[in-house]
Amino acid sequence: MNTRAGALWRKVDPAVATAFGCIVLLLFLGSLYSSSFLSPEYLLQQLKVASFLGVIATGMMLVILLGQIDLSVPWVVAVGGMMSTAATGWGPTGEAFAIPFGILCGVALGFANGFGVAYLRIPSMIITLAVNAVAQGLMVVHTGGFSPQDSSSAAMRFIATGHTLLGVPNALLVWAVVGGATVFLLSRTTFGRAIYGIGNRERAAYLSGIRTQRVVLLTFAIAGGLSAFGGVLLAGYASKAAQAMGDAYLLPSIAAVVLGGASILGGRGSYIGTIAGVILITLLQSILSVVQIEEAGRQVIYGAVIIAMLLLYGREKVAR
């Protein structure tokens, strides 16, 4: 019994444990300020808000596991939101296909990212930046030239703001499905193991028979689709899409993945860590705004807390 508990304890990643510890600490500090921080309504509301970041961070995590980064998140999120609302304006057929259409646009942009990284061997930081710029240009032309509808469909509002069973927000269920699929993908499929392998060393993965370029391409496409899906959810939540809607999601999504113990160099990280990171970031932002610190102070504390937590458990080994 003792050894089993020990084995279980060894399986727990210290980074993930620390991240969950920080969540508890944040809730404790919040409850000192007001007991409503521990009420089920507040917690469910926070989980609902976290779902949007959670879906986007899932895509970011897959890309970071490869050892790459996706800087195209802001405008892919916006594309997802804006194209799905635009489709809503095309009549009943468009409305029915609004959600898949928005996601598909994101997948297309993700394909562009993945093609650049995998086949053209352009550093991901650059190609995703360029694709981000192109997506921005497309959306500016799209809104200015065609003045599309920007209010979301009933289905989008339903999955983002509705409740189904026992008052559990639908957005949370969506995140649970996305998360479950990702865990399955990462731990039970050869594709998922290939992602870890490439993140550790693409050369070795290639030599062991993995078609690394295809895996990279598909991973970026999935990440693009997830970012766009996040945009669809956000558009449903706010019941409309706007140009800068994705700007606030790039840095938090990277921070969430890294706070969850994933290595930014790739090959190491677990989905449970990303969940912890997403909840941590959302709670931090929420508590800072509830205790009515000004935006300036919030930014400073937000940055300082991320640095402090990473110094706690995110340091690299001395590589010599």
Binding site: I69, L251, I254, A255, V258, I264, L265, E294, E295, A296, G297, R298, Q299, V300, I301, Y302, G303, A304, I306, I307, L310, L311, G314, R315, E316, V318
Partner: peptide
């Protein structure tokens, strides 16, 4: 601190921006 530059500067960037905003 042995942190990765990319995440470090994301976080310090938030701090610098906060000070600018103040």
């Amino acid at each position: 601190g042995r942190l990765q530059p990319i995440v470090t500067t994301i976080a310090t960037g938030a701090v610098y921006f906060g000070i600018a905003l103040a």
